[in-house]
Amino acid sequence: MKKEIVLSGVGGQGVVSVGEVMGLAASLYEEGLNATMSASYGSEARGTFTKTDVIISDGAIGYPNIESPDIILCLAQVAYDRYVDAFRDDTLVFYDNEEVTPREGAKGEHIGFPYRSEAIKLGSIQSANFVALGTMSKKTGLLKPEGCMKAIADRFAGKKKVIESNQKALQRGLEL
């Protein structure tokens, strides 16, 4: 098993944090899984395109960058447009259906949710990323929800409020 996951959006949407949580969940709370994550450095200013590549595998991981994703999360139009040509027929495309307009005829199975609106409803616009993780976890079964919950606690250790709001967002995503 090997899954190549691209998390994309604009700076400030927290795609790197989600990547770290996925990496932690795979490494610490799954049996026999390895993960790598390579973030795009130098372009993490707020508002500009940013992405991170996460690979989860039960074997060794070689080349750590992703050219054609198995799963992709697009939280912003600019991110979607950047990747749409790399979609395959079996690519799972998770996207914010209020922020991103899919291209007609694009490859891939498109799965849209109003991540940003859901996060606002929960009282934390910052946690749209974890609502998205919840939907990806539910749809793909790749990472156990309990593992993701624990990984959020690990990643944000010492920041009780952040942990609570991100776990709440993850839970919301699992329910969508």
Binding site: G23, A26, M37, S38, A39, Y41, P64
Partner: peptide
């Protein structure tokens, strides 16, 4: 840089 900034299971 690739290895220095790569995150992975260890």
């Amino acid at each position: 840089e690739v290895i220095g900034h790569l995150r992975a299971t260890v």
